[in-house]
Simulated scan of single mutants.
Amino acid sequence: MKSNWKIKTVGEICEFINGKGHEKIIDENGKYIVVNSKFVSSNGKIYKKVTLNYYHYLKMTLY
Rank of each mutant, 00 (worst) to 15 (best):
K2G: 02
S3R: 11
S3K: 14
S3N: 11
W5A: 09
I7T: 08
K8Y: 13
T9I: 01
V10M: 05
G11F: 03
E12A: 13
C14V: 07
C14A: 15
C14Q: 10
E15P: 04
E15D: 15
E15W: 07
F16L: 10
I17Y: 01
G19E: 12
K20A: 09
K20V: 10
G21E: 08
H22L: 02
H22A: 12
K24V: 05
I25L: 06
I26N: 07
D27G: 04
D27C: 06
E28I: 09
E28W: 01
N29F: 13
N29A: 10
N29K: 15
N29I: 04
K31S: 06
K31R: 14
K31H: 11
I33D: 03
V34I: 15
V34Y: 07
V34K: 01
V34W: 10
V35S: 02
N36C: 11
N36W: 01
N36R: 07
S37L: 05
F39A: 07
F39D: 01
V40D: 00
S41C: 10
S41R: 11
S41P: 01
N43T: 07
N43K: 15
G44E: 02
I46G: 00
I46A: 00
Y47N: 05
V50K: 00
V50H: 00
N53M: 05
N53P: 14
N53L: 07
Y57P: 01
L62Q: 15
Y63G: 05
Y63A: 06
